[in-house]
Design a binder for these strands. Structure first.
Length: 704
DNA sequence: TCCAGGACTTGGCACAAGGTCC
DNA sequence: GGACCTTGTGCCAAGTCCTGGA
């Protein structure tokens, strides 16, 4: 079998940002002609090569008169939207349940319904349960799988609820609270200015949050330290506050050591002790981990209330280090149906509120003190409520596929609109479509790190090059996006886009908005007018999914073995991750594990050589045996080499996010079926649970 | 009409769990 | 069975988008 030939090489250039941010650039060396089948082409890829030539249907050269349009008034007024929000209020919502829509079933109905469902499922199990299963499963595994399937709710075969209604009946056990603080043993001291200081319980707990982060970069960050120290001092007694006035004189090392020891102890526990803990966890999961929705048992995603700690804002978050307070039952709102048994609050406590709102999907909510935002307990991605939404998301993206040609025509026309706002909208949409940029909502600089998306790009985030590396009209993007991850890309763009950008930047300083006549609301309103349900983020989903589909078609060789096919799949997945700028830190273990793999490959090669020699001298029945050995070793050797390639190409790219959030799972399922790859190779157990609907729906002919 | 706030999705990382190797 | 490595999961921050009330 032929070696896997890399269809195109991706050279990921790593650069360090001044603040140490990572960044990744894909130099796609695919030739233009590879993408000649233009309407099926994943735009996101083409843009990285040269977008000025990739659209045949763009009207050939228009007059340059656009540049002569007097834009005299364009920048004078409304230069900037008003400054954003002041402090947030926590508004207590009314009991907003719609009585007409809400008809909860009686409790006994639920039981009946469940029994009925179980019976039905048992009947249909023999026909449906084999889907996606490999043939060589052990009986134990099979039994486990069957048990798991007991609660499968095939919601995609049922009628949908009226719009706005999320459930008819909902019951659950409420949240599980963080365990109470346990004081440090007497021998563990916090020191101030070299002296042991006995802290009050509150102050000690918060010192502990800091102490166990000593190894982390956070504790050398000025903002983090300032915020921490400010909040810590607020929690001290007056005498503590009087004494402890300088963080530099605080010594948390013993606390750090203590928690490390605790962690080591846990690791070194006996089997029985570990088992006891596991059982305890399982019991908690059993009690709190499930909700009943419309008679169906559904997994909850996060039934634990977030424990207190220090806020770990990312990038240059202005609030990092602030104290996240302990949440008490009195802070918590419970949402469940009226007829359900209301979960009891912990002894001696009561809930802030019990609500019966079936227009929302959350079970429990509370308000977090650092940013004043609401936090929720919601259902697991495998639940009907999440799955249905996911399915709809991909259906919307598929609808976009059918109309994206028209939309592109419209925004191309708009490049020469007389109205500045229309031109800006068109160029922004061009970026969103071609580069899969995020929308870029406005942010309050006091509340969050300075990151941007498309609509919030500032002049300082792009550079215009008339020519660069043999290409014309190149735009260089360099900005921090979501999670302060750097987006760096040099893109050849449509000539009219380039001209427009020059125009947008005229008479502006670096800190000014590039699209000063545009925001996400306006853009989304425009998109809604083109198609109901169409928003900026649909483009990301669409472009990701279409890219996967196209790349799979291009890269998969039906004659390959499963390992080779999986390399192709991962490469297709990687293209999407690059498009979406899904980066990860190179794992600390990368070099080491690559070296180990390298050694394995060497050893295997030796082994193979020896086996080949053996084969040469073998006679009679031994010859057949030796031949088999050589074949087996060859196979293993190839697998190792594939694994090395895959691992190395992947070191800086995170595939998980796109797989979980952007790629229509039916594309992957169809690919597995078509090329005879077990679906377990592509989706692990959790992913299969999340995408159960897709596993059931898609056959090998599925087209996104 | 505007915009703050609510609801929900997207996102990377840390660490636990589980598998493999010796 | 312990060390080491890989994979999976939980966590919770940070986005998007929509809605309700002023």
């Amino acid at each position: 079998m032929a070696e896997v030939v890399q269809p195109h090489s991706m050279d990921h250039q790593h650069k360090e940002y001044s603040n140490g941010e990572r960044h990744l650039v894909a130099h796609d060396t695919v030739k233009n002609e590879d993408f000649s089948d233009e309407d099926e082409i994943p735009w996101g890829q083409r843009i990285k090569m040269d977008t000025s030539t990739d659209r045949k249907d763009f009207k050939e050269e228009q007059s340059d008169s656009e540049d002569d349009i007097p834009w005299s008034q364009r920048m004078k007024d409304d230069t900037k939207k008003n400054g954003s929000s002041s402090s947030r209020k926590s508004v207590k919502k009314d009991e907003s349940e719609s009585e007409e829509d809400y008809k909860p079933p009686a409790k006994k109905d639920r039981k009946e319904k469940e029994d009925k469902k179980k019976k039905k499922e048992k009947e249909s199990k023999s026909s449906s349960k084999d889907k996606g299963r490999t043939s060589n499963e052990s009986p134990v595994k099979r039994k486990k799988k069957e048990e798991e399937q007991d609660d499968v709710w095939e919601w995609w075969k049922e009628d949908k609820k009226p719009a706005g209604v999320k459930w008819n009946s909902l019951s659950h056990m409420g949240p599980l609270f963080a365990p109470p603080y346990e004081r440090l043993p007497k021998h563990v001291h916090f020191k101030y200015n070299g002296q042991n200081v006995h802290l009050s319980e509150n102050a000690e707990e918060i010192a502990g949050f800091y102490g166990r982060m000593l190894d982390h970069d956070y504790t050398s960050n000025e903002v983090f330290n300032k915020n921490f120290f400010h909040d810590w001092r607020k929690s001290m007694t007056s005498s503590e506050r009087e004494l402890i006035t300088d963080l530099n004189k605080c010594d948390f090392r013993q606390i750090d050591v203590y928690y490390k020891e605790q962690s080591e102890k846990r690791k070194a526990m006996s089997k029985d002790e570990k088992l006891a803990i596991k059982e305890e966890k399982e019991a908690e999961l059993k009690k709190y981990g499930f909700a009943f929705i419309d008679g169906h048992k559904q997994k909850i995603a996060n039934f634990r209330i977030e424990p207190p700690g220090l806020f770990r804002g990312r990038g240059g978050h202005p609030k990092m280090g602030k104290l996240k307070k302990r949440i008490m039952p009195e802070d918590v709102i419970i949402n469940c149906s009226k007829d359900s048994e209301i979960p009891p609050a912990p002894k001696g406590h009561k809930w802030k509120e019990v609500r019966h709102d079936n227009t929302v999907t959350w079970l429990v909510s509370w308000s977090e003190n650092v940013l004043g935002q609401n936090k929720y307990i919601m259902l697991n991605p495998s639940s009907k409520i999440k799955g249905e939404k996911d399915y709809e998301k991909y259906e919307t993206a598929r609808r976009l596929k059918n109309m994206v040609g028209n939309i592109r025509e419209v925004y191309t026309q708009d490049f020469k609109s007389k109205e500045m706002r229309v031109r800006q909208r068109a160029v922004a949409l061009y970026f969103i479509d071609k580069l899969a940029l995020r929308a870029g909502n406005e942010k309050d600089v006091d509340e969050a790190a300075d990151t941007v998306g498309c609509c919030s790009l500032r002049c300082e985030h792009i550079k215009l090059h008339e020519a660069l590396d043999g290409k014309e009209n190149v735009v260089e993007f360099d900005f921090l996006g979501k999670d302060s991850i750097r987006y760096f890309n040099q893109v050849a763009v449509d000539r009219r886009v380039f001209k427009n950008l020059k125009l947008f930047m005229e008479n502006k300083s670096q800190g000014d908005d590039l699209f000063d006549r545009l925001d996400t609301t306006t853009l989304n309103q425009h998109l809604q007018s083109l198609a109901p349900g169409l928003t900026v983020k649909v483009f990301r989903t669409y472009n990701a999914s279409i890219t996967l589909q196209e790349q799979l078609a291009k890269l998969t060789n039906p004659n390959d073995n499963v390992a080779q096919k999986m390399l192709s799949y991962n490469r297709a997945n990687r293209q999407v991750a690059i498009l979406c700028n899904h980066q990860r830190a190179v794992p600390k273990t990368h070099e080491k594990s690559m070296a180990a793999l390298e050694q394995k490959i060497k050893d295997k090669k030796k082994e193979l050589k020896a086996a080949k020699n053996e084969l040469k001298g073998a006679r009679g029945p031994n010859k057949e045996k030796a031949k088999k050995k050589v074949d087996r070793l060859k196979d293993q050797y190839k697998k190792l080499k594939i694994s090395r390639t895959d691992k190395d190409e992947n070191k800086q790219i995170a595939l998980g996010t796109s797989k979980l959030n952007y790629l229509d799972p039916r594309i992957s399922v169809a690919w597995c079926k078509k090329f005879d790859v077990p679906v377990e190779k592509v989706f692990n157990k959790t992913q299969r649970e999340k995408f159960r609907w897709a596993l059931d729906m898609a056959d090998e002919d599925y087209v996104f």
